[in-house]
């Protein structure tokens, strides 16, 4: 029956980081990050404050250029790509910022429909309709659509940010500390929303967080960043069984262990 035997295709990673290093002045933030994220997978990078989680994300998005190493999305190196190529690639990417990063000169629905209005040149009526759909998807009513971001609570800002991130149906979504600054219940609501929207879109997701309950809920796979390197990767189940002392200390949230906080300014 060799005829029916399928040739197993090697899975091509959607996002691939190889040897990514970045320093600011004399401060070495990333020193050779290697990570592969496969299509449809939800990966969470955990790590303490100042370990370079945000810098990793900014390097992937092309907001920062790595000093060494390569970042590839769909096999294309974003840093070396032409402006047009980079913008086409970015059109497939959605991003939820830590503080929402909503444009305060635009109201909620204009924020959500920003890309549709500015880049896809959609009519305002049509763009508004899509924006309202996306807002409904994150549990916001049409009344909230006319409000300006300054009048929103933290949780609502996150929701609007999420609606904006998914407005163009991206196939890669990044989440930067999605639950930071929210109460535990709102955090869980946001976590649920993230899981459901990523599933609905069938997107590849990368989240950075230090909130372990959020990581457990969102992740298919967890990677731990410490001293500028990925020191451990595994599933949520593996996370509880690992004997890696760094991971155990971080998961337990203990001050005792190999990770010593640098308390000097």
């Amino acid at each position: 029956m060799a005829f029916f035997k399928r040739v197993k295709q090697p899975l091509i990673p959607k996002i691939k980081l190889s040897g990514v290093s970045k320093s600011f002045g004399s401060k070495n933030v990333l020193s050779g990050v290697d990570l592969e994220i496969f299509p449809g997978e939800s990966v969470v990078i955990i790590g303490g404050s100042g370990t370079g989680k945000s810098v990793t994300l900014k390097c992937i998005l092309g907001l920062l250029t790595p000093d060494a190493g390569r970042v590839e999305i769909d096999g294309v190196d974003l840093a070396a790509a032409s402006t047009v190529q980079a913008e086409t690639l970015r059109a497939q990417i959605g991003m939820l910022f830590q503080s929402g990063a909503l444009f305060d000169s635009l109201n909620v629905w204009e924020n959500v429909a920003f890309s549709l209005l500015q880049n896809q040149k959609m009519s305002r009526r049509q763009a508004r309709e899509i924006a309202l759909q996306k807002l409904a998807q994150v549990g916001l009513s049409a009344e909230a659509a006319e409000v300006y971001p300054a009048d929103l609570s933290g949780g609502m800002k996150k929701r609007v940010g999420l609606a904006r991130a998914i407005a163009t149906n991206p196939n890669v979504i990044f989440f930067d500390e999605p639950t930071t600054g929210l109460d535990p219940i709102m955090s869980d609501v946001i976590n649920d929303l993230i899981v459901s929207t990523v599933k609905t879109l069938g997107a590849t997701a990368l989240t950075i967080t230090h909130d372990m309950s959020s990581a457990r809920k969102i992740a298919d796979r967890i990677a731990m960043l410490y001293q500028g390197k990925i020191i451990w990767t595994g599933t949520v189940k593996e996370l509880d069984k690992t004997d890696n002392p760094y991971v155990r200390q971080f998961v337990a949230g203990s001050a005792e262990g190999p990770i010593q906080m640098d308390l000097k300014a």
């Binding site: 900014k58 998005l61 092309g62 907001l63 402006t83 913008e87 086409t88 970015r90 059109a91 990417i93 959605g94 991003m95 910022f97 830590q98 503080s99 990063a101 909503l102 444009f103 305060d104 920003f114 890309s115 500015q118 880049n119 904006r164 990044f174």
Partner: peptide
Amino acid sequence: TMRVTEQIDALVTLSTNPFKY
């Protein structure tokens, strides 16, 4: 303010060039 609240980064991720916009 747009820079420190990450709004300029957000523009880039929404495939809009901040120099043009």
